[in-house]
Design a protein around this nucleic acid. Sequence first.
DNA 1: ATAGGGTTAG
Length: 819
Amino acid sequence: MAAILALSYFHYAGSVDTTRRTISAKTGQNHYLTTKQTAPKSVLFSRKKLKLPNVSTRQEAILLRLESGFTEDALHLFENMNTRDPSVWNVVIRGLTTNGYFQHALDVYYRMRSEGIRADNYTYPFVIKACAGSFSLVEGQKVHSRLIKVGFDLDIYVCNSLVAMYAKLGLIGLAERVFEELPVRDLVSWNSMIRGFVSVGEGWNALLCFREMQEVGLRPDRFSIISILGACSLECLLRYGKGIHGQVIRSRFELDVMVQTSLVDMYGKCGRVDYAETMFERIYQKNIVLWNAMIAGYTRNGKPIESFTCLKKMQEEDKLNPDIITAINFLPSCAQIGALLQGKTIHGFAMRKGFLPHLVLETALVDMYGKCGEQKLARKVFSNMSERNLVSWNAMIAAYVQNGHNREALELFQELWKEPLNPDATTITSILPAYAEVALLRESKQIHGYVAKLNLSSSTFISNSIVYMYAKCGDLQTAREIFDGMLYKDVISWNTIIMAYAIHGFGANSVKLFSEMKEEGIKPNASTFVSLLLSCSASGMIDEGWEYFTSMEKDYGIYPGIEHYGCMVDILGRSGNLDLAKRFVSEMPLVPTARIWGSLLAASRHHRNIEIAEHAAKHITSLGHDNTGCYVLLSNMYAEAGRWGDVERIKFQMAKEGLEKSPGCSTVENNSKIYKFINLDMSHVNTDAMYDVLSIMSRKIGEDIYIHSASKLRPLDVIRKRSTSPEFHSVRLAICFGLIQVSLGSPVFVRKNVRICEACHSAAKKIAENTGREIVVGDQKMIELDACDSLYNTKRYYYFIEREREKIIESDFLCGEIK
DNA sequence: ATAGGGTTAG
């Protein structure tokens, strides 16, 4: 078959556009022409269409070859014909279109015209279909204007094809116009229009169209039903879909496998996989499409195990091999349970079967690898892709963010701007957490501006992320302003703003917001209490902490999770009652994690209780995580107590485990650039000025005993004081650098990779008071908080909205009997 | 003889 594509007899066909193109639908969806879509399909003509009276034997022979998929042979016969009846041309164009050779069909059409043979109303529907098939709007519009010229623009067959073509190209407006201008509309016209709305994602309009069709007295047929079930899925209208199901049962379509498949699909998409299952089980003859729909239903509804079983049953019971769609539908199930091995198996299977390259499948693989924690493999698939669309980019960006590679995610996001693609809501949703992590205020403001431009500011989910992003960047005020301006605040919005105040240590505000939240009738969830307890811990509100901790179970029926216990250890540790904290850990009903012991260790460090620190450290090291931080902390404590033997012992232990102390460093942001400092840092261009400012500041805040300008520093003095004196800690250097560099009126944002020490914390406060500058310092504590709010869930929010909508239309839409 | 259909990633 490849030979036919190489034959040269199509070269004269005129200016036929063979480039691949992307058509953006109103919905922002992209339709892509992939190599798979243009590949020849050995689609057979239906038998009933074959009976052609009064045709020459030659023509019949051509038709026979075309319908059996022997396109090349057919074309040879065609080329050798002398007398060419217009109907022969029609047969050839129809054959090429039906077999998927859209470009060749168009070539033959142009050749037909150049040879002076008039295309008729039988020619155009196929030519139009070929335009749609090759996703060529240019061709389509050329043909459209041509047929207006020759007066076929009122032919119902031609116009119905045009409606379908424009809809397929995503230009629903043009489809509507052709539809509106039709003098007479038959069932096919309506079906094409309904299908069109569904295919661009406008389920609502499809429903309106469906109702209008019945109002003008037409009864839906199986095509209408299949399309309208698609509309139900789009709008998540379970009740309405059930109504259609009722009509189907009373109609003669009950045993139509396509209608049945659409029903299974609809139930799956409306969240009732149980209905889909019942329906599915009752179907006697299951084809691959039906199996795929069922697998997709399980996957979509978070039932990966059932999806696995279903795939197995498909192979065992019906001896069906997975196809591309099966693979695409199945991969998210692997992703959901982190079944890397099974995902890889599918990947290998797809390669052996020659499914690759395939845009959608590769995107699903990127997503699967990303969710299985293999961002490197995801990147490998992504980089190998011959074609990428926005969805592929979104999947790759998400893969980086999900695995904590925020820098890479941001770099990729920057690269995306060079592509002829526009980031959408999904892109923004994926990238915002990366912005929050990296916390560059200026860049965050830029992305915020873009969100406003995209009109996404009204999305609760996205606004929540933006509030969080500003809070993490240190700009609490803007975070609050955005929160106050939100139209719909859900529980996550409240959790986020409470957390924002917690991060900044304004516990009182968190508490106030919590009562406001309750007044608004928003029910707190587990995350709300994490935020609240963190607030209490950060602001030293010990009694309130206990109160919330006991109230969450008593008043709200929320059982404390490991995070809540962690916060309580922090709170108790802060109070200085380390024995109580220790007892709390030993009596908690959950197995303490490294995070819990870490809290106890930090508290012991704070209150210089070596005994309990050793106890906590023993547990941490036994858990086998990265013990570096734990060793360093313990070592510092021994040093402070003058227990040098123990310091040496830990040093030896670290060397044995191949661990190195990661130097504490601080960063400060200026003009979207990050400047990094280590303790005693002298590597920066402004070192002298920086130390001068530090010297002045230290004097002002009463810590000037050891300070001299940098040039007068003698390293030995410094080294001797290292473990105890915080005067040259990186945080202070970063602050001073910021004071010099950041323009007046803008806040100075400093972050530290490990926990900031108490002395630096109070020094920062005093420097802020003295200079009148706003200084925001974030440390490890702030970073730890990220893991807490795991309840971000887009789906839940949208689902809620859809429920509400269903109530509104339920009474409005009553479809008539189906013929 | 002509047109309209189901499964597809985030």
